[in-house]
Design a protein around this nucleic acid. Structure first.
Length: 433
RNA sequence: GGAGAGGUGGCAGAGUGGUCGAUUGUACCUGACUCGAAAUCAGGCGUGCCCGUGAGGGUACCGAGGGUUCGAAUCCCUCCCUCUCCGCCA
C-alpha cells in the first residue's frame, strides 16, 4: 500500500511513477486525494464535538456527585443532541475511509528509480548471462518426451486426477523432485544463512491482502472452504507461493531493531488458477496449476533493502551455477513488474528442448509496500517505528528447473546424467533410459 | 464438536459505570552515587489519526465488531483466539 501522506505531499511524483507502469493507475490519484480531504474535514468536525462532549460529561459527573440532579438532567439532554451529530459524522467518516482504503489497496507499488522504463517484456534489459547453452550431437528431446520415455511424469494420469495442469510425478521423477527440494533448502540454510520455516499451505485472506495478491488477483487463487456452509465458515486460500504465509509471519508485530535482518527460506507447493491462460503453453510442465518452489523472504532495514536484493539474486543464481545450468538475469522494466514490487530481477534458464528461456526465479524488493499492508514495523536505533523492506525471491521454482535439468543433461539414448551436487540427494549418477 | 476459564501497555499483573490511557512490578532509557559495575535513589518510557512551521493541543485505542448510557476497560449481544477437561481423529 502506498503512503497516503506521500500522495498528499508529492502527488505529481506518485502519478509519474504510476504512469511509468503503463496501467493507468495514476488517473485515480486525484479521486483518492478528494476522499482524503473530505475525510479530514469531517473528522475534524467530529473530534471537536467529541471534545465538547467529553468536557460536558465530566461536568455532569461532578454535578451528580454534588447531588444536583436537576441540573445534571438538563445537561444530559444537551449532550445527547451532540451525541447524535457525532454518530452521524462518524458514520460518514468511516464510509469515506472505507472507500479511500479500497482505492488505495488497488494501487501498485511505485517502481524504484533504477528500474528501466518500458512497457512489455521486450523492454527488459539483460543484466548478465552465465554459462553456455548445452550442445548436442543428436537432436535433443523436449522434457515432455524425456518424461514420457523415462516415466518421470505421468501427464495423462495427473490430468485424470485433477484436470489438466496437475502433474503426477512417478519413480525417478518423484525422487528427483524431492531431491531438488532438499538440495535447495540445504543450500540456502547452510551456505546463505537463511532460517528454514515450513508454513501452512492455506492462508486467510488477510495474508493475501498483505502481500498484495488481493484484492486485485483474487481470480488467480484457489479458495477453500471447510465443509459446505458458505454463510458460517471462513474461507481459506491455497498459497500461490510461500511468500503469502512467510512474508506475513510478523504481521501486526513491532520488531526490535536487532531482530533485523530476518531471512527465511521455505518450501511450499504453489497453487495458481492461471485464469485466462488456458491454451497458452499448457502442454508439459512449463505452466501448471500446482508446482513446488523454495522461496526466500527477507525483512530488512530500508537502508539495506537494495543490497539485500542483490544478495538474494546471487543466492538464487548459486543454485543454477552449482547445477551447471545456462541462465541469464534480466531486470524487469516498469511495465512488466509485479504489483507489489519496486524492483525485480528475473532469472531465466535455457531450455534446449524449447529453444528458449524459462523463468525460474523472480527476486523483488517490495520496499515498505507489503509491510504497510500487514503492519509490520521495527523500532530503529532512535526509537522511531518504521516499516522494514520486505523482499521475496524464488530460490528457485521447481518444475521449470526440472525441465531444464532433464533437457540439458540428456544423453543420446535418453538417459539423464545427474549433476554432481545433486547425486548425494538422489542417490544416483544418472537416470537410466 | 461439548463443558469450563480467560484475552489489559515489551513482559507480568491490578482495575466491574465518571477524576482511568489506565495502579503496581519488571524490562528499557537518562541522571546521581562509583575507578567501573552491581545495588540504591530521582526522572522518563505505548500507538494510530487530526490540527499546528513549532512548542503543543485534540481524538481514538484495554482481542474484534455492534449495542445501552450524558459518559464504557468496566454492563449487554455477536464473532475470533488461547488455556484446561471430555469426545473424535492422522
Amino acid at each position: 500500500m502506498l503512503d497516503i501522506k506521500l500522495l498528499r505531499e508529492r502527488a505529481d511524483f506518485v502519478k509519474e511513477r504510476l504512469a511509468s507502469r503503463g496501467a493507468g493507475d495514476e488517473r485515480r490519484v486525484d479521486e483518492v486525494l478528494a476522499l482524503d480531504e473530505s475525510r479530514r474535514e469531517k473528522l475534524g468536525e467530529a473530534e471537536k464535538l467529541k471534545a465538547q462532549r467529553n468536557a460536558a460529561s465530566k461536568e455532569i459527573g461532578a454535578l451528580m456527585a454534588q447531588k444536583k440532579a436537576a441540573e445534571a438532567e438538563t445537561r444530559k439532554a444537551e449532550v445527547r443532541a451532540i451525541g447524535d451529530r457525532i454518530a452521524a459524522l462518524d458514520r460518514e467518516v468511516s464510509e469515506i475511509e472505507t472507500r479511500r482504503e479500497t482505492l488505495l489497496l488497488q494501487f501498485p507499488n511505485l517502481p524504484h528509480e533504477t528500474v528501466a522504463l518500458g512497457r512489455t517484456a521486450e523492454d527488459n534489459p539483460v543484466i548478465r548471462t552465465w554459462g553456455q547453452p548445452a550442445r548436442f550431437e543428436f537432436t535433443p528431446r523436449s522434457h515432455i518426451e524425456l518424461c514420457e520415455k523415462l516415466r518421470l511424469v505421468d501427464f495423462a494420469r495427473g490430468a485424470k486426477l485433477a484436470g489438466s495442469g496437475f502433474l503426477l510425478y512417478t519413480g525417478w521423477g518423484a525422487r528427483l523432485e524431492r531431491a531438488l527440494i532438499q538440495f535447495l533448502l540445504d543450500l540456502h540454510v547452510r551456505e546463505h544463512g537463511y532460517t528454514e520455516v515450513s508454513p501452512p499451505f492455506l492462508v486467510g485472506q488477510h495474508c493475501m491482502v498483505g502481500v498484495g495478491q488481493f484484492p486485485k488477483f483474487v481470480d488467480q487463487a484457489y479458495a477453500v472452504r471447510e465443509g459446505a456452509d458458505d454463510a458460517t465458515l471462513g474461507k481459506l486460500y491455497l498459497v500461490p507461493t510461500a511468500e503469502a504465509p512467510v512474508a506475513n509471519i510478523h504481521r501486526e508485530e513491532l520488531l526490535a531493531a536487532d531482530q533485523l535482518p530476518i531471512r527465511y527460506v521455505a518450501y511450499s507447493p504453489c497453487f495458481r488458477a492461471e485464469a485466462g491462460a488456458a491454451g497458452v503453453g499448457t502442454r508439459g510442465m512449463i505452466r501448471v496449476h500446482q508446482f513446488d518452489k523454495v522461496e526466500l523472504i527477507k525483512l530488512v532495514r530500508p537502508e539495506d533493502g537494495y543490497d539485500e536484493l542483490e544478495k538474494m539474486v546471487a543466492n538464487a543464481e548459486r543454485v543454477l551455477q552449482l547445477l551447471g545450468l545456462h541462465y541469464r538475469v534480466i531486470g524487469l522494466c516498469t511495465g512488466d513488474m509485479g504489483f507489489a514490487s519496486a524492483k525485480t530481477y528475473d532469472i531465466e534458464l535455457w531450455s534446449p528442448g524449447q529453444g528458449g528461456w524459462l523463468e525460474v526465479s523472480s527476486c523483488s524488493n517490495c520496499e515498505d509496500f507489503q509491510a504497510r499492508r500487514m503492519n509490520v514495523r521495527f523500532k530503529d536505533a532512535e526509537g522511531h517505528n518504521r516499516f522494514p523492506h520486505i523482499l521475496n525471491g524464488s530460490g528457485t521454482a521447481l518444475a521449470r528447473l526440472f525441465v531444464a535439468l532433464l533437457e540439458t543433461y540428456q544423453q543420446a539414448d535418453g538417459s539423464v546424467v545427474i549433476p554432481e551436487p545433486l547425486r548425494p540427494y538422489l542417490g544416483t549418477t544418472m537416470i537410466p533410459s
